[in-house]
Write a protein that binds this DNA or RNA. Structure first.
Length: 302
DNA sequence: AACGTGCCCAACCGCTAGTAC
DNA sequence: TGTACTAGCGGTTGGGCACGT
């Protein structure tokens, strides 16, 4: 629109965020909540543009973000969703509430694209239905993959020291989060999500399956919060109704109205959730990824 | 130890859509 | 109706790190 980018302004800092900047940003958001990003740099004294602040918050500091290795289940979901939706990372991320679109995009470009290039058959549908033995085998291998000490250790090892400090920073948010109406128990959270999101079709997927997707096994044991709600409400569990309660402020009121409009439009472009969920949560998709991983291991041996 | 190379991912860029005035 | 602004999105970049030579 002929407007120079905000980041072109002289004196605006670029590049990696320092822990000090993170603390300032988190403290401000603790006090005022996310939103009104334009006022953030001026009110905090941060030499960052509003956009940079927003991105830093949504992609890194926002509580509820899961970092580290992707599980085979997550891989399967990403692969299938990418095949279905294309490079609609935000839409894909809405099915993985703990992951940011940036994270998924990076993971796709750096890992999954290579895997699929090597094993394009991974995307082909399974020709036969799984036998009980196969199911047992797949579920056990999945369980192993998700809980194996080596992968867990690898995930922990990949966490940088700065990431750790960020985790500490995000702990600062706990006080703010506690002040928002929510349950403190993860089980209750899942139930709350199901109940309030309108995704009440318990026959669709098992509770464990759903929890495995939404489990907050990352930092903080952070439970559902309004930011998470915001990102999630863009996709999967949004049916345009008021679901997870957020603080009622003029800011939120405006945003909610906007969200309802935009989400309604967006959802019109997406296949029905129940169909997608059923398909995505089908164990075979995760099994295919597991098979692919095994093939990768074998290929590295030979 | 020094250097080169490739990979990973946080951050940036450019664009579009929506909203307020 | 036009303008300014924000938010969201997808593509790209570049700094830092690991690893091999």
């Amino acid at each position: 629109m002929g407007r120079p980018p905000c980041c072109d302004i002289v004196g605006i800092k670029k590049g990696p965020w320092t822990p000090e900047e993170d603390i300032i940003l988190v403290s401000y958001i603790q006090e005022h909540g996310p939103g009104n990003w334009r006022s953030v740099p001026t009110n905090t004294g941060l030499l960052r543009c509003s956009k940079s602040c927003r991105l830093r918050w949504t992609n890194y500091l926002r509580p509820g973000i899961k970092r580290g290795n992707f599980t085979p289940h997550e891989e399967g979901m990403i692969i299938h969703l990418q095949a279905l939706l294309g490079n609609k990372w935000a839409a894909i991320a809405s099915y993985l509430p703990q992951r940011t679109d940036n994270d998924i995009k990076n993971y796709w470009n750096t890992h999954l694209k290579k895997k699929l290039k090597k094993f394009p058959s991974a995307l082909e549908p399974h020709s036969s239905t799984s036998t009980t033995d196969q199911l047992v085998e797949k579920s056990s291998s999945l369980e192993f993959a998700s809980t194996s000490s080596s992968s867990a250790a690898a995930a922990a090892a990949t966490t940088t020291t700065y990431a750790s400090s960020t985790e500490n920073i995000s702990r600062l948010l706990q006080g703010w989060m506690r002040s928002t109406p929510k349950t403190t128990n993860n089980e209750d959270d899942s139930a709350l999500i199901l109940k309030e999101s309108g995704c009440q079709d318990r026959d669709l997927i098992s509770r464990e399956e759903f929890e495995s997707i939404l489990s907050f096994d990352n930092v903080n044991n952070v439970s559902w919060d309004k930011s998470t709600c915001e990102s999630t409400s863009r996709g999967a569990c949004d049916d345009g109704e008021d679901k997870v309660k957020v603080a009622v402020t003029p800011e939120n009121n405006k945003k909610q109205k906007a969200d309802v409009n935009t989400n309604t439009n967006k959802n019109n472009n997406n296949p029905p959730l129940s169909f997608l969920e059923k398909w995505l949560l089908d164990e075979s998709s995760a099994g295919q990824v597991e098979e692919m991983n095994q093939m990768m291991e074998l290929s590295s041996i030979f």
